[in-house]
Amino acid sequence: MLRKVTLLLVLVVLGMQVWSIRYEFEDVSKNLSYFLMSMEFAIFRYNEDNIDEYAYKLLRVRRSQGKRFSWIYLMDLEMGRTVCKKHEEDIENCPLQKGPGEKKVRCTFLVDVLPFYTKFTLLNSTCVDK
């Protein structure tokens, strides 16, 4: 009986390792529709959660990856602080702050998408000032 339990446990552990290898992240196009929507969602959440009164906008996509066989996207973004407040309409066309107010951040976001419901969930975010 103990052998059967041990064998079953070993098979479960090996199966989980094979499963995790199969579902690693791979590069995806920065123009992929759900990646773009996930990126917009991540930037929106960053602006909402940030205590800064000014909005940040995308400067550069440093990494765009998707988890195989899922709708989870990993993105590494560089963003800059704008002169617009975060609840203004057109942040994309808002100029960046210059001089003492100039600030850039680099963030890594992990976003899960339920495409049939157009629902986005921020699983993780890590940001550092540049």
Results as ranks from 00 to 15, higher is better:
78 E>W: 03
12 V>W: 10
41 F>E: 10
106 R>G: 07
104 K>G: 04
54 Y>T: 05
62 R>D: 07
107 C>K: 02
37 M>I: 04
5 V>I: 14
38 S>W: 01
125 S>H: 05
46 Y>W: 08
44 F>W: 13
50 N>F: 04
109 F>A: 03
87 H>S: 15
3 R>I: 11
4 K>N: 14
98 K>I: 14
126 T>M: 07
22 R>S: 13
46 Y>M: 03
72 I>T: 09
44 F>S: 14
81 R>W: 05
70 S>L: 08
84 C>S: 06
77 L>V: 06
68 R>F: 08
75 M>H: 04
12 V>K: 05
22 R>C: 10
123 L>A: 09
3 R>S: 13
52 D>Y: 00
56 Y>R: 01
105 V>E: 14
90 D>S: 14
56 Y>T: 01
60 R>E: 08
49 D>V: 02
124 N>C: 03
76 D>M: 07
9 L>M: 14
71 W>P: 02
30 K>S: 12
7 L>H: 12
117 Y>L: 15
64 S>I: 00
38 S>A: 10
71 W>I: 09
80 G>C: 04
29 S>P: 05
113 V>N: 03
35 F>G: 00
97 Q>V: 05
47 N>H: 09
64 S>Q: 00
25 F>H: 05
24 E>L: 03
13 V>E: 06
67 K>D: 00
67 K>V: 02
52 D>A: 01
32 L>W: 02
85 K>Y: 14
12 V>I: 15
88 E>R: 12
124 N>Q: 12
85 K>D: 12
68 R>S: 12
4 K>E: 15
93 N>F: 10
122 L>N: 11
22 R>P: 01
122 L>I: 04
99 G>T: 04
11 L>H: 05
84 C>D: 05
38 S>Q: 02
14 L>D: 05
60 R>F: 09
34 Y>K: 11
106 R>N: 14
89 E>V: 15
47 N>K: 04
84 C>L: 08
71 W>V: 11
76 D>Q: 07
101 G>D: 07
127 C>G: 04
85 K>P: 03
65 Q>S: 06
98 K>S: 15
59 L>M: 02
28 V>L: 04
117 Y>F: 14
32 L>T: 06
92 E>Q: 13
47 N>A: 09
53 E>L: 06
77 L>D: 00
85 K>Q: 13
70 S>Y: 03
87 H>L: 15
50 N>E: 06
79 M>C: 06
4 K>Y: 15
92 E>G: 12
125 S>Q: 09
23 Y>P: 02
120 F>N: 00
121 T>R: 15
15 G>L: 08
80 G>R: 02
99 G>S: 06
61 V>Q: 00
63 R>N: 00
32 L>R: 07
67 K>S: 02
74 L>I: 01
22 R>W: 11
100 P>R: 08
